[in-house]
Design a protein around this nucleic acid. Structure first.
Lengths: 334, 334
DNA sequence: CTGAAAGCGCTTACAG
DNA sequence: CTGAAAGCGCTTACAG
């Protein structure tokens, strides 16, 4: 441990003034090379660490981002991890410090949040799982702190960045219709904006392909694999007649796999399945699950760019995900 | 935005001194009730936010923890998310601010880490995926900052908290041997300390049950489901003779499921499978995967408690995971 | 119960 | 190219 050194110590040891030491530390260029070298040597010798609190007191220097995640219920969401990982890597690259906060219910527990306790640390916030009248957004607007919502926001006055949910579903299903798709059922958790966009993409693809929209049926209430299993089992005859099941969230597909397998319906032959997220398990299911993979690196870049715009970069609000056809798609639809 | 208020503004408006204002803000008790109320009212009126940098300048007040995650390669690890989520919730409860950092290679990229750039923010660090001669640990020791490694550390001079890998495997396999288990193969990624503990738990269970240790065969190099699939397919005859496959990491089990299914070997009848982690997918596999579930809340608590010990709490270094038998276990072994 | 003064370790604004 | 002085918004140490 030992004593912590300050720029005054460096000044004393090197024989220069604190201001010149500060110039060297901050990489300003109007310092004589010989001076710079002497001061650098002292800094290295005493293993000096600048005090971040002093540095940010007069005016804030360091940039920080808070990822605020209010996971809905108990479902751990694989994609969040991939998203946070990409954001973290980008932040390190750009010298941004990343805070992460999970809360189960942003309505109540915002009192414990860094937003309520130490907001002066935070320069920008990425909001996951925005709710209607989200207290996080109200607070951030009040305080005038930049923020961006992941996926289209209920509050249409705020910035967001997300998957092109409508676009990718429209594209994928338009292509499927051209290959002869005639009916589908969509399994979704709740009619969130994300899911509504996905459903509308499918519906419009159907009607633009000359099919009746009633041939694409949306089923809400499929929270997890469990519900997917139960619903599929209970409505087996009806579902078995469909050409394809779209499941909004790969995790849920396991319930459908199980239900269909138990009744001898062959996925990728009798019926096709497409998921969303491309969780690690998907490619190893039997048959491997066709899915739609969010473009995490580009999403991370647009999120950060929205908070801290750099002159050149173009911010995309909607990032097109990538369709990954696998064996769960029957040959006719590949 | 508007101007940011300071305790001097509150002092001026309320008619008290800055010191008394500070007393109210910090909840000190030697303030007249009437004074406290007047000052509280001013604070609320002007929507005052304390400046965290000034507060921590004279002496550090806020406590912060950095979760430093060096994910090995490209494998996104579901359990990390569950771990971080629990840590985040606990930190909020205790008023600790959580930083999260991912890096692919701590050997190189530590230069971009907050550890190198702004270490004065950090009061404690949780290290995931410690490496031999980990540069993070060297730096933290140099600076005298408290840290704890998740899972048993290569550096045996440091604190760690982790799963009771040896213990749970010993317990589970001892019970299985009592029920007639006679042979097993263990699929693992690398001979890490974690995996060595798991293997030794199985081996000792075998020998303490009067079985030859050679009946428990460890196979390393199973990085993902892909490798699991290929290895199982290539060594099918040999593997099919075993009573049970233990897979260190549920994600990899999907490859084994696939390989066995393709050859008509029935999991939960002809052969049993046990995984580790209890990822969300596991319970929905067909058959559902028996697995060993880390006790995330207790792990989180011990990690934080190691960094910031509270007088009463007992820190456990090894937390016993929970065995979750499911359909992948043949009836004899349930 | 309340307050005046100095100090934390930097940066800013200015001077030469 | 270099430096002296004041200030950031709190806390500490002390006084009454």
């Amino acid at each position: 441990m030992g004593k912590r050194y300050t720029i005054y110590d460096i000044a004393r040891i090197s024989g220069y003034s604190p201001k010149t030491v500060a110039r060297v530390i901050n990489g300003e260029d109007n310092v004589a090379l010989s001076t710079r070298e002497k001061i650098r040597k002292v800094i290295a010798d005493i293993d000096y660490e600048p005090n971040a609190f002093a540095k940010n007191l007069k005016s804030k220097k360091d940039r920080t981002v808070l990822a605020s995640i209010s996971s809905p219920g108990n479902a751990p969401l694989e994609w969040i991890q991939m998203m946070i990982e990409q954001i973290s890597l980008l932040c390190q690259q750009r010298g941004i410090t990343l805070f992460v906060e999970y809360c189960y219910d942003p309505g109540e527990s915002i009192a414990n949040s860094i937003l309520s306790k130490n907001i002066s640390y935070i320069d920008g916030v990425i909001i996951f799982y925005e709710r209607k009248a989200d207290p996080r957004i109200r607070l951030l607007k009040d305080k005038g702190i930049p923020f961006v919502v992941f996926e289209r926001a209920y509050d249409d006055t705020v910035d967001y960045v997300g998957n092109a949910n409508y676009g990718i579903l429209y594209n994928v299903f338009s292509a499927l219709c051209r290959k002869g798709l005639e009916s589908t059922v969509l399994f979704l958790r709740k009619p969130t904006l994300v899911n509504i966009d996905r459903v509308n993409g499918v519906l419009d693809a159907f009607s633009d392909s000359g099919l009746d929209k009633s041939k694409a049926e949306a089923v809400y209430g499929i929270a997890g694999a469990n519900e997917a299993y139960e619903y599929t089992t209970a409505h087996l005859e009806e579902i078995a007649k469909k050409d394809l099941i779209f499941i909004s969230g790969d995790v849920r597909s396991l319930g459908v796999y199980r239900a269909l397998s138990e009744h001898g319906i062959k996925i990728g032959e009798d019926i096709s399945i497409i998921g969303f997220d491309d969780i690690p398990a998907s490619q190893y299911l039997l048959p491997s699950l066709s899915t739609i993979r969010p473009d995490y690196p580009r999403l991370a870049e647009s999120l950060i760019e929205t908070l801290f715009p750099s002159s050149d970069a173009v911010v995309e609000k909607l990032i097109m995900p990538i369709f990954i056809p696998r064996d769960s798609l029957s040959p006719a639809f590949r």
